[in-house]
């Protein structure tokens, strides 16, 4: 009973924390990108100001749009993103809904927001949005393959090391840092898979070079072309929360260490763990979202597909192979 109350109580806490952190990291992201381009950039709280402004504005529904679908999709995107966060270890504490869902569920939940964006874009009845939605679907199909390979190889590594564990459970993964089970060869394989996953993040989040779905100079923000006001604000929030969710997922799999396992801070440990988590989050977001975004131009949609299906998949498969060989040699 207490457990259920705790779980329900955690929902608003995690939701608020996810939104605030998401917007804050978005602000830091924009500021850092601006400073790298020798600009001053917006203040770090700019995303909050943007959301406040968007929430005050009218949501315009185009005449040709399917109204209920058009209005429902932003809500679906945000709720799916928030739900993802509940199944992932977050801020140094275990998943809030521990035991009710595993990595496979998280992967499915991560697909939901892009799907919602796609449906919303199709429902808006605009040409730009339609092209954007087609592109979004293609991008989604292309990055899912390396992502699935990477996740499966991690689980495989765990199961080979310890066959009795429920390897897809995120709390199990984060409590047993996978680097502990590696031989030199499978360590290399894991590192390669880590890099492949970092390449998948910009695609998942729709950042340059994989922002073909909302390419500003080509199709005028594509999928979001017809969205405005409250609906757009919800999409922004969903994207911000998803950034945090994906980065936390990577952290849970690859960088699960907490400070409290090495040092004993007694009752302060929770705070230090949370701070350490935020630093890890920053590093992941900086590398995969900010840095990649500023150093490459946007790709064509065909190039996005070939990048993911060919190069990234190849990298991930190589990692998988190395892990397999490494584990076989050990076994």
């Amino acid at each position: 009973m207490i457990e259920i109350v705790y779980k329900i109580g955690m929902v608003p806490v995690i939701a608020v924390l996810g939104i605030v952190l998401g917007l804050l990291y978005n602000g830091i992201d924009r500021k850092l990108a601006a400073r790298m381009q020798s600009r001053v950039g917006p203040p770090i709280i700019q995303p909050f100001i943007d959301i406040k402004k968007l929430l005050m504005k009218e949501s315009i529904v185009p005449r040709h749009a399917i109204k209920w679908l058009f209005n429902l999709m932003p809500v679906l995107a945000l709720s799916a993103s928030l739900l993802t966060l509940l199944y992932i270890p977050f801020c140094g504490i275990g998943p809030a809904f521990e035991g009710y869902g595993d990595l496979v569920l998280v992967l499915y939940l991560l697909v939901l927001p892009p799907l919602a964006i796609t449906l919303g874009a199709f429902a808006s009845g605009s040409h730009y949005a339609t092209i954007g939605a087609q592109r979004e679907m293609v991008t989604m199909i292309s990055y899912e393959l390396p992502l699935a390979i990477a996740i499966v190889s991690v689980a495989w590594l765990l199961s080979m090391a310890n066959p009795s564990l429920p390897v897809f459970s995120l709390s199990v993964i984060s409590n047993n840092p996978i680097w502990n089970f590696t031989t030199p060869l499978s360590f290399l394989g894991l590192l390669i898979i880590f890099i492949a996953l970092l390449l998948v993040i910009p695609g998942e989040l729709g950042k340059t070079p994989f922002d073909v779905a909302e390419a500003e100079t080509e199709i005028a923000e594509g999928v979001f072309a017809e969205y405005s006001g409250r609906n757009l604000a919800l999409f922004y929030l969903a994207n911000a929360v998803r950034t945090i969710a994906i980065a936390s997922l990577i952290i849970a799999i690859f960088l699960p260490w907490n400070l409290s396992t090495f040092f004993n801070f007694s009752y302060l440990s929770l705070l230090f763990d949370a701070l350490f988590f935020l630093i890890k989050l920053f590093v992941i977001i900086f590398i995969s979202s900010v840095f990649i975004r500023v150093i490459v131009p946007r790709l064509r949609i065909t190039q996005v597909v070939s990048t993911y299906w060919f190069y990234t998949t190849l990298i991930a498969l190589l990692g998988m192979l190395l892990i397999w060989i490494g584990c076989c040699l050990k076994g």
């Binding site: 601006a34 400073r35 381009q37 020798s38 150093i295």
Partner: peptide
């Protein structure tokens, strides 16, 4: 870009 990050805007 890294050089510019360390410099003033």
């Amino acid at each position: 870009l890294v050089k510019q990050l360390l410099k003033k805007p």
